[in-house]
Computed example of a mutant assay.
Amino acid sequence: MTKVGETVLEIDLRALEHNYYYLRSKIDPKTKFLGVVKAFAYGSDSIAIAKKLETLGADYLAVAYTAEGVALREAGIEVPILVLHPQEVSFATLIEKCLEPSLYSRTIFTSFLKMAKDLGQSDYPVHLKFNTGLNRLGFGEKDIDFIVSSLEGVEHIKVSSLFSHLAASEDLNEKEFTISQIRQFEKISSAIIPKLNYRPKRHMLNTSGIINYPEAQYDMVRSGIGLYGYGNEAAEDENLIPVATLKTIISQIHKIGANESVGYNRAFVSKTPKVTATLPLGHADGIGRQYGNRKGEVSIHGKLAPIIGNVCMDMIMVDITGIDCKEGDEVIVFGQEHSAEALASSANTITYELLTGISQRVKRIYKD
Rank of each mutant, 00 (worst) to 15 (best):
R289D: 15
V262C: 03
G288Q: 09
V298I: 12
G292S: 08
E327G: 06
V311E: 11
G286T: 07
C312G: 14
R289K: 13
S261A: 14
N265S: 14
N265D: 15
G302Y: 06
I300E: 11
V311S: 14
E330Y: 04
V333F: 13
Q290Y: 06
H301A: 14
G328T: 09
K271I: 02
P306M: 06
D324G: 00
G296E: 05
C312I: 00
I307T: 05
V331A: 13
A267W: 01
K303Y: 08
I332E: 15
I323C: 06
S339C: 04
M315F: 12
R294N: 15
D319R: 02
V275F: 10
L304V: 00
G328K: 10
D319M: 13
L281Y: 06
A267R: 04
H301G: 06
Y291L: 14
E297V: 09
E327C: 07
G288P: 00
D319W: 08
I300G: 12
E297P: 00
M315S: 13
T321G: 06
A305Q: 06
T276Y: 10
G282W: 01
G302K: 01
M315L: 10
L279D: 04
E297M: 12
H338W: 13
L281H: 06
G328W: 11
V275N: 13
G335C: 13
L279S: 07
H338R: 08
L304G: 01
C325I: 09
T272W: 07
S261E: 07
D314T: 08
L304A: 10
K295S: 12
G328Q: 04
V333L: 15
D314M: 03
D329S: 12
V333A: 14
N265Q: 14
D324T: 12
Q336T: 13
I332S: 04
G328F: 14
